[in-house]
């Protein structure tokens, strides 16, 4: 993770298009300016960033299912639960699956595990649209490369 740049996913571990599921690794950094304020003397991963982590995990699954042609944007968060504190240095496993694929929107269920134990979960709704510009698509391609997005899940290869 690089919290300052909203890079919350480190590596795709498994992407199963048939089962519509994804598993990623996300390692909480030891140091971040975020922890200077949240909280002094008691650093914790903010809940909103844990939700964002689940959203990004869900997002990569959707991008794969939509063959890298459309970009999902988080639209609604439901039943988000922060079940335990997440602290600097923790190695997280994030899983997401598709609850529903609608027309122009997707609902996912996602969860974060730390040490094999459920730490957070949420139901997330996304709207998706064709990539609005080449700059964003280019950025997502760089990110895809960085986190090990499988080449076979790309439409143009």
């Amino acid at each position: 993770m690089n919290l300052e740049y909203f890079h919350l996913i480190d590596r795709i571990v498994q992407l199963d298009l048939a089962e519509r599921k994804i598993t990623v690794e996300a390692n909480v950094p030891q140091h971040s300016t975020i922890f200077e304020g949240h909280f002094p003397g008691y650093p914790l991963m903010p809940g909103v960033l844990l939700i964002e982590t689940m959203a990004q995990t869900s997002g990569w699954l959707q991008i794969a299912l939509m063959k890298f042609e459309r970009m999902p944007f988080l639209a609604a968060v439901k039943e988000a639960k922060m079940r335990s504190f997440i602290t600097p240095g923790e190695a997280l496993t994030v899983e997401a699956g598709i609850e529903h694929e609608g027309s122009g929107f997707t609902v996912t269920n996602a969860k974060i595990l730390s040490g094999g134990k459920l730490a957070c979960n949420a139901t997330l709704t996304f709207r998706h649209v064709p990539f609005p510009n080449t700059e964003l698509r280019g950025h997502m391609e760089v990110m895809a490369e960085r986190i090990g997005f499988p080449q076979q899940a790309r439409a143009d290869v």
Binding site: A75, A76, H100, G102, S103, F105, V107, T125, R127
Partner: peptide, 12 residues
Amino acid sequence: LDFLDIAFAIDK
């Protein structure tokens, strides 16, 4: 946005 929830429920 609310209509997405309705669409989800109707689809199901």
